[in-house]
């Protein structure tokens, strides 16, 4: 077994996704078989192999420190689910 229900539940929490009981059950089974399949990677010898996180060998792409236009408020807020004056608003933050 590669992943259990508890771990999936924790991952869902980290990802801030509510899962119903049935959903969690199903997802756990599916992820377990997907991870079993992914575990075939364990067969590959990776000793001394560097990781590739970028497909192209590009370096040092930088921009000049020059001002560009910011968005006007009507565009900034045009999609906002909740707004008060010139602020986005969210429900009370309590951890």
């Amino acid at each position: 077994m590669s992943i259990d229900k508890k771990t999936v539940e924790y991952m869902a929490h980290l990802a801030r996704i509510n899962l119903g009981d049935k959903e969690l059950e199903k997802l756990s089974t599916q992820l377990d078989s997907i991870l079993d399949f992914i575990d075939t990677l364990k067969k590959v010898s990776i000793e001394g192999v560097p990781p590739t996180s970028h497909a192209l060998p590009i370096n040092n792409v930088l921009r000049e420190d020059s001002l560009a236009a910011s968005l006007p408020a009507e565009k900034t807020f045009s999609n906002a689910p909740s707004r008060k004056n010139n602020f986005f608003t969210v429900p009370k933050v309590i951890e």
Partner: peptide, 8 residues
């Protein structure tokens, strides 16, 4: 009191 404002 019951919500928070965000300034980016």
């Amino acid at each position: 009191d019951d919500y928070s404002c965000v300034d980016y």
